[in-house]
C-alpha cells in the first residue's frame, strides 16, 4: 500500500524542554493507527504537528507528498481532525455549522447541500438540523463534529482523544460512524488512552513514551486486549493514564 503520512526525524521542543525526539513514522493508506502513551508523552503535540497546527523544531512531515511546513493549505484540504473540542459554533444550527465549514473547504452549491444532508443522516442528526448547537448534548455535538470533519471527504482523519466526555450510547454511535468509513477512502490516526477500543478498532498500534516511539506493530501481532495492556505497561515508564 502507498504511504499517505510520513514523518522523518521529527522533534519538537518548547524552550529547552523536548517534547518529541526524532520521530520516524510511516502510515499507509487505509490503516487505522492508534497512538498510545501516558499523559505528557507527546501524543497531542504529534497530532498538532501532523495537522499543521504546530511546526516541528526539526524534521519533515509529508502528507501525500506535500510538505506540511511548505504547503499547509494543500495538506489542510486533505485532512480532517476530530478532538475532544468539537470546533462547532454554539449559536449556529447544525446545518449552518456544516455549511460554514464546507464553504471554508471550497465546497458550494448543490454539492454542499447534498453532502450536508448525507452527513447529517449518517450521524443521525437529520431531525435536529435546524437546532442550534448550544441545545445539543455532548454526544450529539461530537457526532456533529464527525460530520464537520468529514465534510470535505478527507483522505486522512486525525482523532485526538475523541471519546472524552461521551456516554456509552454516544460512544457506540461514534464508533459505528468511524467504522462505516471506507478504509480505501479514509486513513485514520487515533490518539487515545483506551486500550480495549484500540484493540477492537485499530489495525496498527504505536506507543509513545517521553517523546519517542517505543513500540510500533500491526494489531494482528498483538493477541488480545490483555496482551496490549502488558505491552503498554512494559514499554511506558509512567503508565498512570491506563
Amino acid at each position: 500500500m502507498d504511504s499517505i503520512l510520513s514523518l522523518s526525524n521529527v522533534s519538537k521542543s518548547y524552550g529547552n524542554f523536548p517534547v518529541l525526539k526524532g520521530i520516524d513514522l510511516d502510515i499507509r493508506k487505509g490503516e487505522f493507527v492508534a497512538i498510545l502513551g501516558s499523559n505528557g508523552a507527546g501524543k497531542t503535540t504529534l497530532v498538532k504537528i501532523m495537522s499543521t497546527l504546530s511546526s516541528p523544531s526539526e524534521g519533515v512531515v509529508e502528507i501525500s507528498g506535500h510538505n506540511v511546513a511548505d504547503d499547509p493549505a494543500s495538506v489542510r484540504s486533505m485532512i480532517g481532525v476530530i478532538s475532544h473540542e468539537t470546533h462547532l459554533y454554539n449559536d449556529l444550527t447544525a446545518e449552518e455549522n456544516l455549511r460554514f465549514f464546507g464553504k471554508m473547504y471550497g465546497i458550494r452549491g448543490d454539492g454542499l447541500e447534498d453532502r450536508i444532508n448525507e452527513l447529517l443522516e449518517q450521524v443521525e442528526l437529520s431531525g435536529r438540523s435546524d437546532d442550534r448547537v448550544v441545545t445539543f448534548s455532548r454526544g450529539m455535538k461530537q457526532r456533529l463534529s464527525i460530520a464537520r470533519s468529514l465534510i470535505h471527504e478527507p483522505q486522512l482523519l486525525f482523532l485526538d482523544e475523541p471519546y472524552t466526555g461521551l456516554d456509552q450510547h454516544a460512544s457506540r454511535t461514534f464508533e459505528k460512524v468511524l467504522q462505516d468509513l471506507d478504509p480505501k477512502d479514509t486513513t485514520r490516526v487515533m490518539v487515545t488512552h483506551d486500550l480495549i477500543r484500540t484493540f477492537q478498532m485499530c489495525n496498527r498500534v504505536v506507543i509513545l513514551d517521553h517523546g519517542r516511539i517505543v513500540f510500533d506493530s500491526p494489531m494482528s501481532d498483538v493477541g488480545s486486549a490483555e496482551e496490549l495492556k502488558e505491552i503498554y505497561i512494559s514499554n511506558v515508564k509512567s503508565h498512570s493514564s491506563i
Binding site: S51, A73, V81, E85, T86, H87, Y89, D91
Partner: peptide
C-alpha cells in the same frame, strides 16, 4: 466566540489563509 469549543482551531485547520 472562537475560543468556545476550540472554534479558532477548527478555523485554522481549514485551507484558508
Amino acid at each position: 466566540a472562537e475560543l468556545e469549543n476550540g472554534c479558532l482551531e477548527g478555523l485554522k485547520l481549514c485551507p484558508v489563509s
